[in-house]
Design a protein around this nucleic acid. Structure first.
Lengths: 283, 283
DNA sequence: GAGTCATAAATACACCGTACATCAATTGCA
DNA sequence: TGCAATTGATGTACGGTGTATTTATGACTC
């Protein structure tokens, strides 16, 4: 009595038909695997018992979720809201999306898949890495909820299109004598950095939506709170924060600054007189 | 009819005494502000109607929350669980903690406050920045839920002790001719990077707790999923991922690698022949 | 027509944060 | 000495969440 997919023990299998899967997620996975086996993923009709046309599919669910998050922010994103937006019952979503967590992944994947990095990229490793970072940053600007989702899942999102960015970055730097492990680390480091720099964007987007406080007001209030609680004596630098520091700490500027520092640091790994590399992907 | 703290409209003020605050959070804020006004914050007694001793205080609540998160992970952290751990009613917490979101901030602040950076730090800007990053990293290792909380709030946590890290970092690099705005950016960039590099730690901690999958199993499963869905042809680099890449992408190693690249990049901002600076804080 | 199966949905459960009303205890003041 | 004000602590309840379980419906094969 074990789930056919994940092998977990099956609970409450007493009444009715014998159960085969431990959860809807596993059942859905099995179903999708069965669908994926025949070589025609574009034409899923003519399945036994399948209605003439399905009202839903995974793409529609994911697109609706992305649109909702874009429109009303990550706080409004829930299975119920997505379902009502689509005009279907809540549980209908679970036929196409194994769980809320995997919906998050699918949303991230959809956004990245819609904007792949160009092939071939520009010339020169630095221009390439810069482009890849800037393009990812642009995605976070347009979909601020993404940086939130990435962190909320307590694990890196399982999104092939995001992995494609990593792959592209590795190829962007390949051919300069760096070993494979270093390429991995550079690519991951860049993605990690862009994501982290984008986290404040989610906050600003939410604040702009609820029109509660602007970032400036918030920074001012926080500064005053610090002045009251800790006293500026202990934080001499923070005590001098003014317009200049505020401007410098704007997410956009932090991103730009850190990006260049990081690229500079990567440059030091490479042999100094390296001539410009050939086209991408030629190893 | 507006809240005396935030000015928001007061709903449902018909029956009973007229309300003065829009929420318990505001009422608590007003109460705390009133407590802070007299110049003796250590001796708040002799208030009218104040009981002799309170069973709870903010410190106990925050400590219980931190202990709970350490013990059972961020998923188990809720107001109800904290309350039962303390043996009090749920709503009793709200007398000392304005809201769940601010409890998050207080938890982060408590952890950072318990481990301040040393004064004076070591010699040399690089050793200092490295120490500050490594010490923050150590905190995330010990309290993996922190990286999660930082991101969940959709805004940087309001934690003075965390701001103290920023201040320390700015002082660590001060005296090398960098302008104030650049100091701000360096300090924020380092903190941002450490936090983001720590996000996978939360995942691993949770996985280890539920003993579902190890990181190695998870990476393997993900690789197979990619091979099935996208096909390795489109991701030539990822297709070659093996033990070496797995080892390289270990959070600890990503952190170390990125830290050194970042410090290298910062070093390029400084004049090359700069002699070692004097003791910290001398401007 | 019976049986099998996938779709879709309704219901239900356990949980969350927290607004609200209430109670007893304490104190200052009339 | 009473009374009003104020606080700590709490119980109850509301509207929300993700999703397990169950049921109804239709389409297909035999």
């Amino acid at each position: 009595m074990a789930c056919e997919v994940c092998g977990r023990e099956l609970r409450t299998a007493e009444r009715g038909r014998p159960r085969r899967y431990c959860s809807r997620a596993c059942r859905t996975r099995a179903y999708r695997a069965r669908l994926a086996e025949p070589p025609a993923p574009e034409e899923p009709a003519a399945q036994p018992g399948r209605p003439a046309e399905a009202a839903l599919d995974q793409g529609r669910v994911v697109r609706a979720a992305v649109a909702l998050a874009d429109r009303e922010g990550v706080a409004a994103l829930s299975m119920r809201r997505v379902a009502t937006d689509l005009g279907v019952g809540v549980m209908s979503l679970y036929r196409y999306v194994p769980s809320r967590e995997e919906l998050n992944d699918l949303m991230v994947d959809a956004v990245f898949a819609a904007r792949p990095l160009p092939e071939p990229g520009p010339d020169g490793w630095r221009a390439r890495l810069e482009l890849s970072a800037r393009q990812e940053w642009e995605l976070y600007r347009r979909h601020p909820w993404m940086s939130h989702l990435v962190a909320v899942t307590t694990r890196p999102p399982v999104a092939p299109a995001l992995m494609a960015y990593t792959d592209w970055r590795m190829r962007a730097l390949d051919g300069h004598g760096l070993d494979f492990a270093t390429l991995v680390q550079v690519a991951i480091m860049i993605g990690t950095y862009v994501q982290s720099a984008a986290v404040p964007l989610a906050h600003e987007a939410q604040a702009a939506r609820t029109s509660r406080h602007t970032r400036r007001e918030w920074a001012q209030a926080r500064k005053e709170a610090f002045a009251r609680s800790i006293g500026a004596a202990r934080l001499p630098m923070v005590a001098e924060f003014g317009d200049e520091a505020f401007e410098a700490s704007e997410p956009e500027n932090i991103f730009e600054f850190g990006l260049h520092r990081m690229l500079d640091g990567i440059g030091l790994l490479l042999p100094p007189d390296q001539s410009p590399p050939g086209p991408m992907g030629t190893q």
